[in-house]
Simulated assay, not measured.
Amino acid sequence: MTTSDLLALREATLRIGPGGVAEFTHRRPEARNALSMAMREDYRDMLERVENDRGIRALIVTGSDGSFCAGGDVKGMAAMHASQSEAGAAAQARSRIAADHHRWLDRLRSLDVPVIAAVDGPAFGAGASIALMADFVLASTRASFCMVFARMGMVPDFGAFHTLPRLVGLAKAKELMMTARRFGAEEARSLGIVHAVHEPACLLDEARHLAARLARGPRDALGMIKNSLNRSFDCDYRTMAEIEAHQQAVAMSLPFHADAVQRFLRKESPAYDWDRAVEGKGTA
């Protein structure tokens, strides 16, 4: 990467690497990368770049200094309590803030490129919720997750009511949210939250390896697959069939499909062949 590939934001950085793999890194180590208002602005700026750059084909979201994201900024919460003496005004302000962060969270969830969360250390509260927005979660052996909200007399936020029960089932989601207990990487993998567990020193390289392989795929088709799967739990069969028909017509009109057909006729390997990449050597 060259220096032009690095964008320094307020409390995060965005790097655009080879093959169109972008890396968004939380950089607030003094607070274990807690999600401040400034970092939320960084997410908006990052999303603006990724959404408008067709050269970006995969996104990695990660932390720094042994922490993914320790959750919400409790000191910021204390300041809000101190500055808003009237309960009604405080509730209205918090409602506006929540509505605002759901706008950029939906953009993160709906990105038309694969999103990988590389979780090293704690992913608590909002940090865990952000990880759940990713398409793939890779965790280090020292990663830990916690729906910590109930400890603070709060309810889960940042989309966790939507994402967690779809991943682990309703009963398990109730247990994790109502006990607010901490759980490690291996349990998270057994629950279907984590895709793979790696040693801390290897985690980011493994995330880059996965991102690079996904980035070689059909960008538009993968984006449509992701979009349809995100909607599949909320739509009936007929609606999903209509979406499928429309997306298939679009996909089959694109150059990637035409090239794949010609490769098949010439008895050549597909340009995007996951099994061949797994079995081959030096494949990213």
Results as ranks from 00 to 15, higher is better:
94 R>S: 08
78 A>D: 15
222 L>I: 13
112 D>I: 11
222 L>D: 00
224 M>L: 14
230 N>L: 05
55 G>K: 00
21 V>H: 08
208 R>E: 14
163 T>N: 06
44 R>I: 03
76 G>E: 12
233 F>C: 09
181 R>S: 03
56 I>T: 05
158 F>M: 14
114 P>Y: 15
45 D>F: 06
35 L>N: 07
158 F>P: 09
192 G>Y: 08
16 I>T: 11
271 A>T: 01
93 A>E: 11
7 L>P: 05
21 V>Y: 12
20 G>S: 10
236 D>Q: 13
165 P>K: 03
70 A>G: 02
101 H>F: 12
23 E>V: 12
97 I>S: 10
183 F>Y: 15
136 F>K: 02
201 A>T: 12
144 S>E: 04
69 C>F: 01
140 S>Y: 02
91 A>W: 02
210 L>F: 13
170 L>G: 10
57 R>H: 10
125 G>M: 00
6 L>H: 11
142 R>I: 02
262 Q>W: 01
252 M>R: 14
77 M>L: 09
41 E>Y: 04
159 G>W: 00
221 A>M: 06
221 A>L: 04
143 A>N: 07
103 R>N: 05
127 G>Q: 00
92 Q>G: 13
171 A>P: 04
45 D>T: 06
227 N>L: 15
67 S>P: 09
227 N>R: 10
69 C>N: 09
237 Y>N: 14
83 S>W: 06
82 A>N: 08
14 L>N: 03
32 R>W: 07
253 S>G: 09
109 R>H: 12
271 A>S: 06
80 M>K: 11
242 E>K: 10
270 P>H: 05
215 A>S: 02
28 R>K: 09
239 T>A: 15
241 A>Q: 13
147 M>Q: 07
160 A>L: 14
224 M>Q: 11
18 P>M: 01
257 H>L: 08
66 G>F: 04
156 P>H: 06
203 L>M: 07
135 D>W: 00
60 I>M: 03
154 M>R: 11
257 H>S: 13
103 R>H: 02
110 S>L: 09
245 A>D: 04
77 M>F: 06
198 H>N: 01
46 M>T: 14
9 L>V: 07
284 A>K: 04
54 R>D: 12
189 R>W: 05
129 S>P: 01
276 R>S: 13
96 R>C: 03
147 M>H: 04
99 A>Q: 12
62 T>Q: 05
263 R>W: 00
135 D>A: 00
8 A>I: 09
215 A>H: 00
238 R>T: 15
215 A>F: 01
57 R>A: 04
259 D>T: 08
23 E>Q: 13
23 E>R: 11
171 A>Y: 15
194 V>Q: 07
282 G>N: 15
189 R>S: 12
24 F>D: 07
52 N>R: 10
203 L>W: 08
63 G>W: 01
67 S>A: 15
84 Q>A: 15
257 H>E: 14
210 L>T: 04
189 R>Q: 15
179 T>S: 14
68 F>C: 03
101 H>N: 08
119 V>E: 00
188 A>W: 13
147 M>Y: 03
49 R>G: 02
44 R>Q: 10
117 A>L: 00
253 S>I: 02
4 S>F: 13
220 D>T: 11
196 A>D: 15
46 M>S: 05
163 T>V: 12
4 S>R: 05
191 L>P: 10
269 S>Q: 12
91 A>H: 01
101 H>Q: 06
244 E>F: 06
14 L>W: 08
